[in-house]
Design a protein around this nucleic acid. Structure first.
Lengths: 198, 198
DNA sequence: GGAGTTATTCACCATATGTTGAATTATGCT
DNA sequence: AGCATAATTCAACATATGGTGAATAACTCC
């Protein structure tokens, strides 16, 4: 019988093990958060020794940061939302939101970021930063009044969708087609953006 | 100088150390979740040796369950919401929601439960159970159509409020007076309960 | 084909964590 | 006063974890 156990030393061929580790890290951080993910679990998921994770990505914090890298520039993605003015901005925002969250490649890092924000582990900077970097500019571009409050309302609805649709995966929200979801939530977001505040 | 270090053995007086441990556990689980909370941290917060935590509450899972005990019966609290029928149910639901979440005694266990649901650690039963125990009966009492979907919409907004107001504590939501919050969100919930679905 | 570089694993280390059992002190009952 | 019981800490164990350094194997380039 031929031994299938991984021998020591470099493997034959040109496997992109670094990428495999990154994929595994994204999935685990997205599923279990920072504290709940161990380097050894990442290594096991990538079929690799734990030391190799350190070899490629230094400390665990570094790996977390690398796994959280989103290849989406919020300003670019949000531009079409802001361009059309306030009218219909709720619906356009929802479409952009879904295009990013329904794509697994972007969802996994975003889930990691979300878990990082919800966890208490030194994500203080993310807490403020997210508002200021994503929703703040959008509010400015839309030129709405009381931007902090309106954006907090918008965020509260979007965050709820994230939790129920992507984390807890409550039906029928988890399987609802994007168009239907947009149609359902657009009036809410639109009211938060330009409706009466109370 | 008199030694203030805790000597060995039973302490004089009748301190309710068990209760102190439970309070500390509630706060830490609420703030840091299950994985992020260590028995030693709970013990330190209660000014007690770690072994005493085990003495009173067995394993860490047992302590978690004990800390999550909510002294609120959902059926009792939700009764007035359901009694008035669908009209104004959104506003009444929000008032009950705030009365429970703005009270620290009930908020801490609820935060623990929430973190348990969001964390992946075997909270599968909580995921379904919460819907079926809290929102399901409410939907039945209100006699609305498509209860699963409407309740998921309601939950998505309420969960978003929990995250922004009580966990991340985003202003101005975190400090917003209850009345204002009710007035702001009531139309949304009411539409989810009896408005058109798309 | 030999030298250097890179990829990969193994064997450890220090620390943290959940948990247990014995030892010590106070309280309560008789 | 004396004894059982409860409360509390100490010491320790087994395990898991993040991290490091050396050893081994494959690849690259001359």
């Amino acid at each position: 019988m031929t031994s299938t156990a991984p021998r020591r030393g470099r493997r034959p061929g040109a496997p992109d093990t670094r990428a495999a580790i990154l994929v595994a890290a994204r999935e685990l951080f997205a599923a279990s958060g920072f504290a709940g993910t161990t380097i050894r679990a990442v290594a096991a998921a990538a079929g690799v020794d734990a030391a190799l994770v350190h070899h490629y990505f230094g400390t665990k914090d570094d790996l977390f940061l690398a796994a959280l890298e989103v290849r989406v520039d919020p300003r670019v993605v949000l531009a079409p939302v802001a361009d059309g003015g306030v009218d219909g901005a709720g619906e356009r925002l929802l479409r952009v939101f879904l295009s990013v969250w329904d794509d697994e490649d972007t969802r996994l890092p975003l889930l990691g970021i979300f878990r990082g924000i919800v966890e208490p582990t030194g994500a203080q900077l993310a807490r403020d930063g997210f508002m200021r970097m994503v929703l703040g500019p959008l509010a400015a571009a839309l030129g709405i009044d009381e931007p902090e409050q309106r954006m907090a309302l918008v965020a509260s609805q979007l965050v709820g969708i994230v939790v129920l649709r992507y984390i807890v995966q409550v039906e029928p929200l988890a399987s609802m087609p994007g168009d239907r979801l947009v149609a359902t939530y657009a009036p809410t977001l639109q009211r938060y953006l330009d409706g009466p505040l109370q």
